[in-house]
Write a protein that binds this DNA or RNA. Structure first.
Lengths: 83, 83
DNA sequence: GAGAATTTGTACGTATGTATG
DNA sequence: ACATACATACGTACAAATTCT
């Protein structure tokens, strides 16, 4: 699953969170790396910004990423010691 | 329509794009001329910068203007040969 | 060349409204 | 009523490019 599927009954933000989580777990998005911007993900998946933000907030709640206002969202890793 | 109208149900960025397009078509903003800065338009119309940028991006998509980072947005004309 | 000011570029934070299931 | 999803529109902050002093 590399892109969200509008025909899939699973909520788009859930699908997108799953996709991003997989990219992190697989190492495609390594610790300390910058997660694609909301604007980029919005265009890449053809969803609204609100949907992208909901997906990212799920990962944030899971402690997988950290978001810095005006900078972006970064992948957290054990070598980041929770930071 | 010289200023955007917050009571008008038409989106502010659409209204502003319409106004600027008219200024270009009428010759008030001739080819090669500098379109007022985002900051100026923002104050002139009482809208946010993001709204101004959305309006200008419409004109850019229509090929009416060209934006140069750090310089400004310029009106395109036939004598500019698409540049 | 240095430094300030201007202007556009990027990115996130928040609020509200609309529509649908 | 609630969840999902999109659109509009405000704001903040900083970076990058250019221009001016």
């Amino acid at each position: 699953m590399s892109h969200v599927d509008h025909m899939n009954p699973i909520p788009l933000y859930t699908q997108l969170a799953d996709i991003l989580r997989e990219r992190i777990k697989s190492g495609e998005l390594p610790p300390r790396s910058l997660v694609p911007s909301e604007s980029y993900l919005q265009q890449e998946h053809g969803v609204s910004r609100g949907t992208v933000r909901m997906a990212i907030s799920i990962l944030r709640d899971e402690g997988l990423v950290v978001t810095i206002s005006g900078r972006g969202t970064f992948v957290k890793g054990r070598d980041l010691k929770g930071k």
